[in-house]
């Protein structure tokens, strides 16, 4: 069973944990001005109380962390050295682990993309772009590139080997990207899905969001040419600083 501890000295009596808990674990003791753990066995370890607590006074023990792949390792390293006792999520440890995660991700992406399309309609590219920007901002080896050309090269490096991207940039506003090997094309082939669908839209905007964040630019898709061996995207590039 999950064990919750409240540091009573640190607690400021704001009652936010009482409001936030989805399973109503806490009651507020008005006399002592602190929350009491009344229904501890209802806790399922979502950690929303410890997240909202302004004093970081709530700690949990014996929670099973789900596997997480989105943490920035360098930040976790800093935390491991700053606050030694804080339990940290695991990172994928070996190639097999990462491959399993990728395979799982591919199948999930297929279903998620179609759900996005049904519920959000036209904003599918916006979701992809945001995801790409998140990726650019999180990668540990990421350093801000000097030029857009350098950003393209770094992006191509980053997406290999799952995607082989050949960007052709004229240095001004015209960019033509050829995608050779593609993880999505393979997946679509296996599942019998036509190219150029939701997943391709999601992938393109993901890639564009990533490149845009890295190179401080906005990318506008002019035309895409899906193909069984190679896909091509013709893109117009706007510099963000020019408005």
């Amino acid at each position: 069973m999950i064990k919750i501890t409240i540091d009573e000295d640190a607690c400021v009596g704001c009652e936010l944990c009482v409001d936030e808990c989805p399973t109503d674990v806490f009651d507020f003791n008005k006399e002592k001005q602190i929350p009491e753990i009344v229904r501890e066995k209802e806790c399922f370890g979502c950690l929303s109380c410890s997240e909202i607590c302004p004093a970081a006074a709530i700690t949990h023990k014996d929670i099973e962390h789900s596997e997480e792949y989105h943490h920035n390792e360098e930040n976790l390293k800093l935390v491991a050295r700053l606050a030694i006792d804080v339990p940290l999520p695991n990172s994928p440890s070996d190639d097999k682990h990462i491959k399993a995660a990728l395979g799982d991700l591919g199948l999930r992406l297929l279903s998620v993309a179609s759900i996005f399309r049904q519920t959000y309609g036209g904003s599918l590219p916006a979701i992809g772009t945001m995801a790409g920007r998140m990726l650019a901002a999180q990668l540990s080896k990421h350093r801000i590139p000097e030029s857009f050309q350098e950003a393209l090269e770094k992006a191509a490096e980053q997406f290999a080997p799952a995607w082989v991207i050949n960007p052709d940039y004229d240095g001004n506003s015209k960019l033509s990207m050829k995608v050779g090997t593609c993880f999505i094309r393979e997946l679509c082939g296996e599942e019998g899905i036509e190219l150029g669908g939701d997943l391709c839209v999601l992938f393109y905007s993901y890639m564009a969001g990533y490149m845009g964040k890295m190179g401080n630019a906005r990318l506008k898709l002019i035309e895409s040419y899906p193909g069984s061996e190679e896909c091509r995207y013709d893109v117009e590039v706007f510099n963000k600083n020019d408005g």
């Binding site: 540091d7 640190a10 704001c14 001005q33 302004p54 004093a55 970081a56 006074a57 606050a83 030694i84």
Partner: peptide, 20 residues
């Protein structure tokens, strides 16, 4: 040994009353 830093925030030492 390594100096451990507490995860507590400034609020944990603050004397002000947080209320709605």
């Amino acid at each position: 040994s390594v100096p451990a830093i507490s995860i507590k925030t400034v609020c944990s030492e603050c004397s002000r009353r947080m209320e709605k």
